[in-house]
């Protein structure tokens, strides 16, 4: 029943932008919706797939096998004193998440146009949900990483305590990129075509298969502008006890914050016309 108690505040839909809820507040208020959207994604991915979750492991394992052959056996790259497969898998973990989640987030609005044109919900929930379902893959792959680490006898130290921070950094960066891509994609479907080559280049611009520790000075600074570079190096330090990557992390972190803040601002501006242009 409609409540007759204290007057309910007006919700406004105005030509002028007024105060908006913060990112955290929006995510919190729509947490159940985000959960159900992510759950739908996860269910759909493994429904009628006999091997189910095994498929999650295929991509990182296959890539690591190839990388081990090409980069270690043939090119003999340095792996910061770690067993190469372990080194590459850690990078692959973050990278697989990043690339899967950004592709998913970029498609989530244009893939469900009726969600945008027929019903109102906080639009931020859609890319956020796109981010959530690949977390399952990340968790499964982490188990694989733990097994591999045990096999090589690499034990994490107190660095492991920083792992949640690593995860948060990864999620925040992916959200930033995802917000940009999902909002641009609504207007310009070019995103769909551009994303595959961009991610391919991005993979090799990130220290997944090789170590960037040889870089220094200006080169290092420019290289570190890639936020994924910082995330991967921080992850190796935290999860495997690789050497501390140093101040270049700060550069990567700044880029991450920049992408998230601008992505959020752009999304917020663009979401007002999503229903008109999708």
């Amino acid at each position: 029943m409609p409540s007759d108690a204290a007057p309910v505040p007006w919700t406004e839909n105005s030509a002028h932008r007024r105060h908006q809820e913060s990112l955290i507040a929006v995510l919190w208020h729509s947490r159940q919706l985000i959960g159900y959207l992510a759950l739908r994604d996860i269910r759909l991915r493994y429904r009628q797939a006999a091997l189910g979750v095994v498929w999650v492991l295929v991509q990182p394992i296959a890539t690591v096998v190839v990388f081990t052959f090409v980069f270690q056996r043939l090119a003999g790259v340095d792996s910061e004193g770690l067993p190469y497969p372990l080194f590459a898998l850690t990078g692959m973990l973050a990278w697989t998440y990043f690339s899967n989640a950004t592709s998913r987030a970029s498609e989530v609005l244009v893939g469900n146009p009726n969600l945008v044109t027929k019903v109102y919900f906080p639009r931020l929930a859609a890319p956020a949900a796109g981010l959530l379902s690949p977390v399952v893959d990340l968790a499964v792959s982490s188990v694989l990483l733990a097994i591999l680490a045990a096999y090589y006898g690499v034990w994490p130290g107190w660095n492991l305590l920083a792992a949640p921070l690593w995860l948060l950094w990864l999620l925040a960066t992916t959200l930033g990129v995802g917000l940009w891509l999902s909002a641009i994609n609504v207007r310009y479907r070019d995103v769909r075509h551009a994303l595959t080559p961009i991610l391919q280049l991005w993979l090799f611009a990130s220290p997944v298969a090789y170590s960037a520790s040889a870089l220094s000075g200006w080169e290092d600074l420019i290289y570190s502008l890639n936020p994924v570079a910082g995330i991967i190096e921080f992850g190796r330090w935290s999860l495997l006890g690789a050497p501390w990557p140093g101040s270049s992390l700060l550069v990567s972190a700044c880029t991450s914050v920049f992408i998230l803040v601008t992505g959020l601002a752009y999304f917020r501006r663009a979401e007002r016309s999503f229903a008109d242009v999708i």
Binding site: S3, T11, S14, K118, V119, Y120
Partner: peptide, 27 residues
């Protein structure tokens, strides 16, 4: 009214929970 799109001029306000049935079974 349901905030699916925003107006170009003016303001629309609603009070309480608004449910839009513009389509059956969205999602």
């Amino acid at each position: 009214i349901t905030r699916i799109t925003s107006p170009t001029t003016g303001t629309s306000r609603t009070r309480g929970r608004v449910a839009a049935l513009l389509e059956v079974g969205t999602g």
